[in-house]
Every structure is written in C-alpha cells, then in structure tokens.
Amino acid sequence: MKGVIIVLLFLIPVAVFSDVLDTIDNPSAFGMMMGGAIYTVYAGPQSIAYNPAGIATDDGGLFFSHVEHYLGVIRNDFLSATTNLGNLYLGGGFQTTRAIDTDYSQYRFYGSLAYRMNSLSIGGNISAFYGTDIINGFSADFGSIFKMQNFKFALTLKNALANITWVSSTVQYYPVEVVLGAGYENSSINFNAFGNITSGEYGIGLQYFITKYFSLCAGYNGTFGQTGSFSIGTVINNYLGFDLFISYTFLNATNFGQSLSPFTVSMSSDFGG
C-alpha cells in the first residue's frame, strides 16, 4: 500500500497548468449540464469519460451521447457500456471526434474496471488512441469515490502515462492530470464540484430532483483565468426504457451572439439494472 502511495505521489505533478492532452473530456449531456462536475457521481457507463470509479453502480447498461461543438464544426460521439460481476464492474467505451470541414478524426477506445466496497469504490481505464494524424496512443486513468454520509469525494488521475505517436513520428508525452471532486447529495439535490489542478479547469453543478423520474440541472464550467460557460439541462429517467439527458450550454454566447456549442443529447439504457 505504501508503494502505491509513493507511486501516486510521483504521478502527481507540480500544480501548474501544463500542456495537457487535447481531447474532448466532457462528452455527455449530463456532464455538460453539471459543468463537468460528475467526478463524484456514480453515473454508470458515461463515468468512463470522467471517473472510472463511477461505473460501479447497478445503473449499468448502454450509454450514447452526441454533441456538435463550435457551431457544428466538431462532432463528438461517445458510446459506452458496463456490466458487473458482483462488486466487480467491467466497462468499455468508444469515442470519435470529427472535424467536418477538414476531414479529420480522432478515435479513443476505453477499457474499464472498477470495484466497490461499501462507501469506497476504485476504478481504472486504459485508453488507446488512433486518428488521421495519430499513429497510436495510450493513456490510463485511475479514480476513486468515497462517500461519507451525504458527502462524497473523488480523486481522479487522468491521462497517466499518456503518450501519442503522431504521423510526423513525433512522440508527445502528456502530464498526468489530478482532478479533485467533492459533492453533497440528498433526496432533493445533488451538488458537485471539481477542479483539475493540472489544467486549471473547474466546474460546479447542481441537480434538483423534482420527481424520481425528472430533474433539472445547472452548471458552470471554466478554465482558470478565462470566461467559462453556463449550462442548463434536464434528466428524464426511465422514459420508454431509457434515461434521457438534454443540455443547453451558453458557450461564449455574449461574444458571438449565439452559443458555440448549445445542445448535447445523451441517452442510456439500463440493461444492467
């Protein structure tokens, strides 16, 4: 255990905003409407993109999300699935990001594993990268969620050991990102926050449960020193066998007269539940 801690300490970089891996890391509508702050949430298959410990929930199954960023120039699709063997949870995911005006694509494949022990769960991802300019790439994520009564905490190490070999034969290495999360949850609200001390990104999100099947969300996401984005959204649970997530994000709308990345739509099917 001490060895693991030492390794983790080595992986934690100095808290400067480094040149991190440039990929879409907030692909789901639920994540968007919560300002990206779902690192402390057991969100099922979509947690693969945030905190792999979050897949350790019985709300497993299939998840799909689609978003058109930046006035529709960037299209991102995220498909993931999880299942469990007792307290051991398995997952896999696929993410594609395409630029429609330059015919450029990136692909990311996930493999996930998580284990839940009462109030604590831990998990990990390994990812492979391919794309138009990418020969191959690799990264690993490690995450944990700890609940203490209504409070919850999360530590996620994203993109550990990340490297990408570009078609120019350049191999680029990226720093591990340390993401801290905290939240409070009861029967009415689900409040969460996160901070990425490596990249300077942060976010807060509030989910308000109107009924068991319907909730409203609002969140704010940003990067230290920059103007962020405000999002609202709704979650409809168990609608025709699906959970439906729709968010609307005001990304730099005041500067450009319209939001650059307004709608994100996600849905999940609870096969595992």
């Binding site: 440039d22 960023h69 529709g72 120039v73 005006d101 450029y104 990226y174 450009f256």
Partner: peptide
C-alpha cells in the same frame, strides 16, 4: 499541444456586438 483546434470569428458593425459567426477547425 498537438491536436485539433477550432477558431471562431464573429463580425459586427459595433465593437463586441457580433451579428454573424463562423467556426473553422
């Protein structure tokens, strides 16, 4: 870093009031 980026431009007849925008990757 290496990777994909997007540039968004807005234009208008008044400073900081933009009536048309366009994005390119």
């Amino acid at each position: 870093s290496n990777g994909m980026y997007v540039a968004v431009v807005g234009v208008g007849s008044l400073p900081n009031v933009f009536t048309q925008s366009k994005a390119i990757s």
